[in-house]
């Protein structure tokens, strides 16, 4: 709980509003891919927004746990629709923070922010495999039945996620220049 003491009301509110916006983008994109059962397509659809909003969150609140909190708040809404999506996001953001902080120690460097936000969506893929195994009643091998296609979608997810992170950095820099993001 000491981690939470570093956050101010301003930080928490910003992360929560950003989480709500992230859900809105999900509402727009998810119906398009909802019926596609191909592994990784849903992750790929959300990847660009996860990258963008994850970067903006960390650019404004450069504190360890900011990314995790954003996705916990996002999960609070997702929990009402699908507990699986909540777990997916929670575990993905937790792993992304651990990896980024293990390499860079903090978020002072923009590379740390780019890395954390960029790897988040690809990290939701392994948890998706686990839940897909349960949901579709298949084994992991059956899910990645078409290895080439699955690998391609995983690469696409990573590429979109990092592209989103790059867009997020650009937006954050523009807002900072305009004096909106302190």
């Amino acid at each position: 709980m000491k981690l939470l003491q570093k956050f101010t009301v301003r930080d928490i509110v910003f992360l929560a509003v950003l989480a709500a916006a992230l859900t809105v983008t999900g509402v727009i994109t998810m119906p398009l891919v909802m019926t596609i059962t191909l592994f990784g397509v849903r992750n790929a659809a959300a990847a660009i927004f996860y990258g963008t909003f994850g970067t903006i969150a960390l650019m404004k609140v450069r504190k360890p746990g900011a990314l995790l909190l954003t996705f916990v708040f996002n999960g609070a809404i997702l929990l009402m629709m699908s507990p699986v999506m909540f777990l997916n996001n929670f575990l993905g953001s937790l792993m992304a923070e651990i990896i980024a902080l293990a390499i860079f120690k903090n978020y002072e460097n923009e590379k740390a922010i780019f890395l954390a936000a960029g790897i988040l969506a690809p990290l939701t893929l392994p948890t998706s495999v686990f839940f897909a195994m349960l949901l579709n009643g298949q084994t992991a091998l059956q899910i990645v039945e078409r290895p080439l296609l699955s690998a391609l979608i995983c690469i696409l997810t990573a590429a979109l996620s990092f592209a989103g992170a790059a867009i997020g950095l650009k937006i954050a820099r523009e807002l900072r220049m305009a004096g909106k993001l302190k």
Binding site: A21, A76, M80
Partner: peptide, 23 residues
Amino acid sequence: CPRAITLGMLVAIRFFPILIAET
């Protein structure tokens, strides 16, 4: 539950429809 979590959850849930309107 920590206040930061309860506040964040409340704001996120409450502002979801508002942000749809903003969009």
